[in-house]
């Protein structure tokens, strides 16, 4: 997984997105591991066009479909999750998180940080904890103690 390179492709194509999930946890300082990059993308036609161009450059296909279907604009304009395999690794591009929460909805709970010279917007640790609590999947619940401890440690400093 070439994570930083993958982020670089998205930034170069001027895709508006928020890093969510495990990579957001790591950006926030949580010492966890994950195997994919989850982003919440803005679902405007212009942004989805840029996103399609970005993922086309890295040969993205739906990894849950053996027909190797490539994502197009209609796939990414909707609220669903595009679970993609790319030449740089696994990318989940989400139209919404939680219960229909959009890119615009979470902006207030994001921050921009520099990663290898790239300006990357990520979900705050506080909001990430709320998302994981709400999702309630076993893998999300397992991550919660680390996330809460990271937040407590950060607040202590």
């Amino acid at each position: 997984m070439r994570l930083v390179e993958l982020l670089g492709v998205l930034v170069r194509h001027e895709v508006e997105f928020v890093v969510v999930g495990g990579v957001a946890a790591v950006i926030n300082g949580a010492p966890i591991t994950t195997s994919d990059l989850d982003i919440l993308h803005r679902r405007t036609p212009e942004n989805v066009r840029r996103l399609v161009a970005a993922v086309t450059e890295i040969d993205a296909t739906f990894r849950t479909d053996s027909r190797k279907i490539r994502p197009n604009e209609s796939h990414l304009l909707g609220p669903g999750h595009a679970l993609l395999q790319t030449t740089l690794g696994v990318l989940d591009s989400l139209g919404t998180i939680e219960t229909n929460t959009t890119y615009e909805d979470v902006l207030v709970d994001t921050f921009v940080t520099e990663v290898a010279g790239l300006s990357i917007r990520a979900l705050t640790l506080e909001r990430l904890i709320k998302v994981k609590e709400q999702t309630g999947r076993p893998k999300d619940l397992r991550m919660l103690p680390e996330l809460r401890a990271t937040l407590a440690e950060r607040n202590r400093r």
Partner: peptide, 25 residues
């Protein structure tokens, strides 16, 4: 939860954190 790991991670930059993650991956 091992707090020493968290303190170590918080002492890194965001870039360093992602490079560590890439190594794990």
């Amino acid at each position: 939860v091992d707090l020493t790991l968290i303190r170590w991670s918080l002492g890194l930059t965001a870039t360093e954190r992602l490079r560590v993650l890439e190594g794990h991956m």
